[in-house]
Design a protein around this nucleic acid. Structure first.
Lengths: 222, 222
DNA sequence: TTACTAAGTGTTAAAAATACACTATATCTT
DNA sequence: AAGATATAGTGTATTTTTAACACTTAGTAA
């Protein structure tokens, strides 16, 4: 036990709720715990902070180690610290939420976790620790942010149609939107650029293809 | 050194940016550090998390111990963890911001800190650690929240006039507001109750007195 | 050629936000 | 008591934003 302190210290972890759009559904990335406690249960990717590591770096590192997912948009969510939230010892978890576009996805679970998988938000398995609470908060934050930021664009592939974009907003907000009003609004943001070309997508008229003028930027709007 | 761990653990602290309205200005509560590092410098009230204590409780306890301020509205702000933010050891700070109404205030610095005092935000002294950054973020969050929550009401005394309320909004947003439009808006929230009575306040017409229908509630509006 | 399906497009009405100026009621002074 | 002074209090017209609403277009498939 080489690390000694005059006063007790909690452990610090990061946990990340990663959202992506798959099969026209909002899905969440979970790992199956390989160790006790909650061995075999599903949990958010995350792990212990290294002593010289930034909080953000820790979240990204653990995520990549456990799931192979790397290229994403991430924001700090909230810090959870109920004294009994981890049976091993006192653990403070600095949580993040993140969005990946489906086309940047390549799942390749690492050694830390036995398994990683995507779950539709409506059908989450039983979760370890207080992770259900974390996910709930992340989901709320995400829905709220669609109203005053461009965060939802981070779920889009590099190119997309306006209908695809509308569908993302409808899924995040969980309500139908008017097509004409949505398009007017989306284009008025001046973040979309038509990249001449059409997407054939079924037995119907093909859609114009757009891309973001600043793909990595998330702005506060309105 | 009785506390031993297999892996290094960071220390965890909470720090709180407490805002109040004094002398028609937004002021911030600071303590002068009695110990190294940054001995003699001003800093946010805060301190180390006890091992069985909730994060929120820690923030409130440290605040009361150091300044005597107890009855306030508090929200978690952000968690700061740059590896070099404290020269002693790795310290993760879970920060909060809080609002007190001037009439609930009774400063009585405790033993932990040499001194506690209010500073107008425009005239802050040099600060310890990364506390200037924390304050900046808190100030931004507070201004933003005036637009979509009733958080600003937490700065009001138990009873107040509409002009006083308007003045608080003007200070938080740092802009003049139109008197008629502001009153229309404020009353339309249905959170204010006229408590028959007038406040004489100079050589001019006295103002009607209001109070909050739910003084401790902060709601998301609109 | 016809049936089918999603893409694409404007206008009108309702609601919300903004701009704007005078009267009322108290105190203080002379 | 008359007048000066200072903040409280009040309504309407205009602009902007949001919301409601239906048909035509361009492909594929039978």
């Amino acid at each position: 036990m080489p690390f000694q302190y005059q006063y007790p210290h909690p452990a610090v972890t990061t946990d990340v709720a990663v959202f992506a759009l798959r099969d026209q559904q909002l899905q969440l990335l979970l790992i199956r715990r390989a160790q006790e406690p909650y061995k075999g249960r599903w949990a958010l990717p995350g792990g212990f902070l290294e002593i010289d590591e930034d909080l953000d770096s820790c979240a990204k590192r653990e995520l990549e180690e456990e799931t192979g997912v790397a290229d994403l948009y991430m924001e700090q969510l909230y810090t959870f610290g109920r004294p009994d939230r981890d049976p091993r010892e006192r653990v403070i978890s600095v949580t993040y939420y993140a969005l990946v576009s489906a086309d940047k996805l390549s799942l390749s679970p690492g050694s830390d976790a036995a398994e990683a998988a995507w779950f539709p938000l409506r059908r989450l398995p039983e979760l370890a620790f207080d992770h259900a609470e974390i996910i709930h908060l992340a989901r709320e934050r995400l829905a709220a942010k669609t109203h005053y930021s461009t965060i939802a664009f981070q779920l889009m592939a590099e190119t997309f149609t306006l209908s695809e974009l509308q569908s993302v907003y409808e899924i995040l907000r969980n309500e139908k939107l008017d097509k004409r009003n949505f398009r007017k609004w989306a284009l008025s943001l001046n973040r979309l650029e038509e990249i001449g070309g059409k997407r054939r997508n079924g037995n119907h008229r093909p859609a114009k293809i757009y891309r973001l003028t600043a793909p990595d930027r998330v702005d506060i709007i309105r």
